[in-house]
Each structure stands twice: as structure tokens, then as C-alpha cells.
């Protein structure tokens, strides 16, 4: 047959509890970390966002590798997961290429005409 595993691999018990514990610890860490404002300490913009994302990615890889058995399965399943995430990254990054660089040639082109939504210009909302 093509690419089939022969035996079903049974992960030992302690790995499950270790991974479970690690996830809970990491959750506590990410909540704790969120109170510290990294941007002012290291001066790198959106540092907090990067830290939160790194911790979330570690947790996600732990779940994927051990709970979803990617560690003991054929590499093709990991490839499918990564291709899905890569496709999502492409969507996010290239869309931000547009929304983030709009005002680059004409600053007027970047600013919305009504920064606050019309919902908040109370005087003419009623009779629109």
C-alpha cells in the first residue's frame, strides 16, 4: 500500500500529563506576561504581541505534536497542517500589505473621510 503505517503507536502516559501540565503552565505564563509592558522596556514596537504569539505557537505545537499524534504519524499530516497555516499567513500578510501602506503616496488617500463612524455623529443620524 502507499505510505501506510504498520503498527498503531501508543504514546506513554507520562507524555500526556507532561504536555498537559506544560500547557497549563504556559497559559499562566502568557497571562502573567501580558501585565508587563515589553514595548516600553525593550523599545521594540508590538513586542507584547510578538511574545504572546510565540507562547501561543509553542502551546499549539505541543498540542499538535503529542495530543494530535503528529510526532508519531507520517510526516504528510504535518505537511498538510503547515500548508494550511502557510496559506492563512499569506492571506494575512498580503492583505496587510494593502491596508497598512494605503497612505504612502498621498497621505490624504490613507485617512478615512469620517474617522469616527457616522453612528456617532448624533445630530444627523436621526434624520438620515
Amino acid at each position: 500500500m502507499s505510505e501506510n503505517q504498520h503498527t498503531t503507536h501508543i504514546t506513554p502516559l507520562w507524555i500526556y500529563f507532561a504536555v498537559g501540565g506544560a500547557l497549563l503552565v504556559l497559559t499562566a505564563v502568557t497571562v502573567g506576561v501580558s501585565f508587563i509592558d515589553f514595548t516600553s522596556i525593550f523599545g521594540v514596537s508590538s513586542m507584547n504581541f510578538a511574545v504572546a504569539m510565540i507562547i501561543a505557537t509553542i502551546k499549539a505545537t505541543l498540542v499538535a505534536l503529542f495530543f494530535m499524534h503528529l510526532y508519531s504519524d507520517s510526516k504528510f499530516y504535518s505537511l498538510t497542517l503547515l500548508s494550511g497555516i502557510a496559506c492563512l499567513m499569506i492571506f494575512i500578510v498580503i492583505t496587510l500589505l494593502d491596508t497598512n501602506f494605503r497612505g504612502k503616496i498621498y497621505e490624504i488617500e490613507g485617512q478615512p473621510i469620517e474617522p469616527a463612524a457616522k453612528i456617532y455623529q448624533s445630530e444627523n443620524v436621526s434624520d438620515q
Partner: peptide
């Protein structure tokens, strides 16, 4: 095919930089 969708929006007020990439 997943990288090129912006060529439908060259004149739709999309940023010139994104238009070049697409």
C-alpha cells in the same frame, strides 16, 4: 494562485505598493 488575488483590485483604492506586489 493564492498569491495573486489583488490584480482584480488595481483601481479599487488599494495601496500602490500592494498593486505592485500583486
Amino acid at each position: 494562485s493564492f498569491l495573486v488575488w489583488g490584480h482584480h483590485m488595481f483601481t479599487s483604492g488599494q495601496s500602490r505598493f500592494a498593486a505592485m506586489v500583486f
